[in-house]
Design a protein around this nucleic acid. Structure first.
Lengths: 198, 198
DNA sequence: GTCTATAGCTGGATAGAC
DNA sequence: GTCTATCCAGCTATAGAC
């Protein structure tokens, strides 16, 4: 508790970095990726346009942090949703449902994950966070079909299918969020059961 | 053949509208949606930045035309791919495969369809073109399960699943284009057969 | 129908004071 | 660590000449 509450030196926060991240989240949530500019973020945080450069190398660096936060939040939610059921097939279905829910509830954050256009080879921490999401599915998939190879293919199929349903509901192709969740879960069950049968 | 070959009045084309569309396609294909600006398109077409405004109301109008072209091209391809097989289940699989192929071969055009951020309620021709794509699937789906309601749900499930696989391969989550196509087709078959069984 | 020229705006990023 | 001030760049859209 010692050095926690420092006096702001210029005019502002004790923790501008966090404030900038929060402001950036708000901007993305409200105006989407296109509305994300350092100028706008600075305005929201109540600082000058020069201030962020002391905390982030450039615009992209802040953006990458946001994407990472999005991955972390998704993992948290999917994990929680899957923990509520015991059956492996139902875990996959719960994932699909939660995936669609996140897309609907946190649309901009969800879109950010895919539309940010960041090079994942240049940012291994992002690739890792993305892989960690799919990692949630490995255990149930393996429980469904012992074979590693087959289990991984099931993981990808379920995730891809969930993603498609999420995008379609955002695009208005699928009717309501509720139906979309149910259908995504249903598709996940079908895929999982097919792997059991084979 | 009469009034076809008019003399360019200023300095340029007989059909600048088309030339602009083509140039815009090139720009999007090369630099993605973010690189699409009227200034850049004008440069490519070899005209001044003012010229496009005689043919398109504004930037968005040209963009909407591009999206429409993308839909048309997709419909053409999916239709051709589906025509090569007779079995309804295989038609759905062929669609899924072609869908992934288009995403890989024409990445920017594919992304344009979803990322352009155009209001489809304000542009009914786009909503219609999108619906026409799904329309391709209705007949096979109906052949698989007589019930209209169920058939439509199968259509959506297959399309969503194909979309998810397409996005995943673009993101590098799925390995190679070839495997991605096979897996998308496989998932389509599983979904279709499940609807047969029920 | 196309051009030149320009107005008006917004953003990224840096230099230097404090 | 933050500010002020500034530079440079790019885009959209319009006005008016030809």
């Amino acid at each position: 508790m010692d050095s926690e509450v420092k006096r702001p030196s210029g005019r502002h926060h004790g923790d501008l970095r966090r404030a900038l991240e929060a402001a950036a989240m708000d901007v993305v949530a409200e105006k989407g990726l296109a509305g994300f500019t350092l100028a706008e973020v600075s305005r929201r945080a109540g600082v000058s346009v020069a201030a962020p450069y002391k905390h982030f190398a450039d615009r992209e660096a802040l953006l990458a942090t946001l994407v990472l936060r999005s991955y972390e939040e998704q993992r948290r939610r999917y994990r929680a949703a899957m923990a509520r059921v015991a059956d492996p097939v139902e875990k996959l279905a719960a994932f699909a449902s939660a995936y669609v829910r996140f897309a609907v509830d946190e649309r901009s954050l969800f879109e950010l994950t895919f539309a940010a256009g960041l090079d994942k080879r240049a940012r291994p921490e992002l690739a890792e966070a993305g892989a960690a999401l799919l990692g949630l599915l490995e255990a149930p998939a393996h429980a469904i079909c012992g074979d590693d190879q087959r289990a991984h293919r099931l993981v990808l199929a379920v995730a891809a299918c969930a993603h498609g349903h999420a995008v379609f509901v955002l695009e208005g192709v699928l009717d309501g969020p509720r139906d979309a969740r149910r259908q995504a879960a249903s598709a996940a069950r079908v895929l999982a059961n097919a792997h059991v049968a084979l």
